[in-house]
Simulated assay, not measured.
Amino acid sequence: MAEEILEPDLPIIDPHHHLWDLRPLVGAFPEPLHPFVAALVDAAYYTFDALYADTHSGHNVIGTVFMECGAFYDSSRGDALKPVGEVEFVNGVAAQGASGLYGDYRPCASIVGHADLTLGAKAGEVLDALQAASQRFVGIRHAAAWDADPATLGPPFHHPEGLYLDAKFREGFAELGKRGLTFDAWVLEPQLGDVLDLARAFPEQTIVLDHCGTPLNIGPYNGTLGEHFARWRNSIQALGECPNVSVKLGGLAMAFCMMPEEGPAAGIGSGKLAEMWRPYIETCIEAFGPARAMFESNYPVDRWGASYPALWNAFKRITTGASDEEKHQLYAGTAAKVYRLENLLGAS
């Protein structure tokens, strides 16, 4: 049964979603499917039409930010420059939205791409190519999610341990600041110290921590959310003391966090979701403040446990007591500031 949309007029900039076509890969993963892979298979084809349907399911989504996901790389280029193809593709989707055929809605109004920062200073050449590919390109994500147990992440991820501490990576990371680009960090909860070290080493660099720092409830971590909550909270509070770091409030419905454990597409209501997510969301908002926190859908990955309408309803239940200004920051203002989308707010 469809939920009534809460605060349907509240402007939202969704600062974290993907686009992809995974259909050629379906069947290539070993059985039984890792829960995260199962979630991807369930949303194997997610491009403009699917995004439009989700973002027009009741909430007032005025614009979005695309987040890199290895989609539509250009096979004609060398390995370092293949990610330029992803930005070129997404720029076309953004142009489709900007045509005016869909009203004031602006999907992919900013684009976060990927560059391999372990190239060191040579990563600057890739960043320049990404900037040339689209004026909407604003930054990169170079994920570093790692765990010793392969059951935690599953087959799609092969990031090296301690990536954000690596000297060559940091040489490439320094190229971002020269170009005024943002950096999205995705790690798992036990690795949050690596993000803290990076943020302190580059205090002028804008860093966005994805998915509330990804608390784990999968594989060897299943059933340990309560056991590790204090450790997670301490890390979040330390990161909140770094003025160059913002946090994305979401990702908790993906299979790594398993809030809920049922999925994919469990059909759980926003009341139950809000109850599960509230301790994490409220801790993050308290640590960072509304001006450095932004709600995200992480779609279609978070479709594992939450429909798009229920996901945003859950967030709105959590922020019932927030002021109008705090809601403005959390749902649109912070994303607009970080990803250069202030022009969207003028139209809202």
Score class of each variant (00 low, 15 high):
residue 172 G to L: 08
residue 261 E to K: 14
residue 196 L to E: 14
residue 239 L to W: 04
residue 51 L to F: 07
residue 229 F to G: 01
residue 308 Y to L: 07
residue 15 P to Q: 15
residue 228 H to Y: 14
residue 233 R to N: 14
residue 6 L to A: 09
residue 80 A to K: 03
residue 106 R to A: 15
residue 322 A to R: 12
residue 54 D to G: 04
residue 287 A to G: 04
residue 113 G to R: 09
residue 31 E to Q: 15
residue 67 M to T: 15
residue 78 G to T: 13
residue 13 I to N: 01
residue 217 N to F: 14
residue 64 T to M: 09
residue 218 I to H: 06
residue 46 Y to V: 05
residue 237 Q to M: 09
residue 305 G to D: 09
residue 312 W to L: 06
residue 18 H to S: 09
residue 299 Y to K: 06
residue 153 L to A: 04
residue 29 F to P: 01
residue 197 D to W: 02
residue 244 N to A: 11
residue 330 L to A: 14
residue 167 A to F: 04
residue 64 T to L: 13
residue 344 L to Q: 05
residue 269 G to K: 08
residue 249 L to D: 05
residue 286 E to L: 08
residue 189 E to G: 01
residue 178 K to W: 03
residue 272 K to R: 13
residue 70 G to T: 08
residue 7 E to N: 10
residue 287 A to I: 00
residue 182 T to W: 06
residue 313 N to H: 08
residue 344 L to T: 01
residue 277 W to H: 07
residue 122 K to N: 12
residue 15 P to N: 14
residue 256 F to Y: 15
residue 153 L to N: 11
residue 143 A to H: 08
residue 235 S to R: 01
residue 25 L to K: 11
residue 20 W to Y: 08
residue 179 R to Y: 06
residue 51 L to H: 07
residue 275 E to I: 00
residue 29 F to T: 02
residue 277 W to Y: 10
residue 23 R to Y: 02
residue 262 E to G: 00
residue 270 S to G: 04
residue 208 V to S: 14
residue 28 A to L: 07
residue 246 S to I: 00
residue 119 L to G: 01
residue 287 A to S: 15
residue 16 H to M: 01
residue 109 A to I: 08
residue 271 G to H: 11
residue 40 L to R: 05
residue 208 V to Y: 03
residue 297 S to R: 12
residue 245 V to T: 00
residue 212 C to H: 10
residue 327 K to D: 06
residue 54 D to R: 01
residue 136 R to H: 09
residue 257 C to I: 05
residue 294 M to E: 02
residue 287 A to Y: 06
residue 236 I to G: 07
residue 260 P to M: 13
residue 215 P to H: 01
residue 332 A to T: 01
residue 256 F to W: 15
residue 66 F to R: 04
residue 339 Y to E: 02
residue 108 C to M: 13
residue 94 A to L: 11
residue 281 I to M: 11
residue 328 H to T: 10
residue 220 P to L: 10
residue 332 A to L: 11
residue 328 H to G: 13
residue 34 H to I: 07
residue 88 E to S: 09
residue 78 G to N: 13
residue 17 H to A: 07
residue 256 F to K: 01
residue 279 P to W: 12
residue 157 F to P: 00
residue 181 L to R: 07
residue 19 L to G: 02
residue 56 H to Q: 15
residue 166 D to W: 07
residue 329 Q to I: 00
residue 96 Q to I: 11
residue 178 K to Y: 05
residue 139 G to I: 07
residue 169 F to Q: 02
residue 320 T to M: 11
residue 124 G to V: 01
residue 190 P to H: 04
residue 259 M to P: 04
residue 288 F to S: 00
residue 90 V to S: 02
residue 146 W to Q: 12
residue 52 Y to C: 00
residue 94 A to T: 04
residue 319 T to K: 00
residue 333 G to A: 08
residue 345 L to C: 03
residue 82 K to I: 05
residue 11 P to E: 10
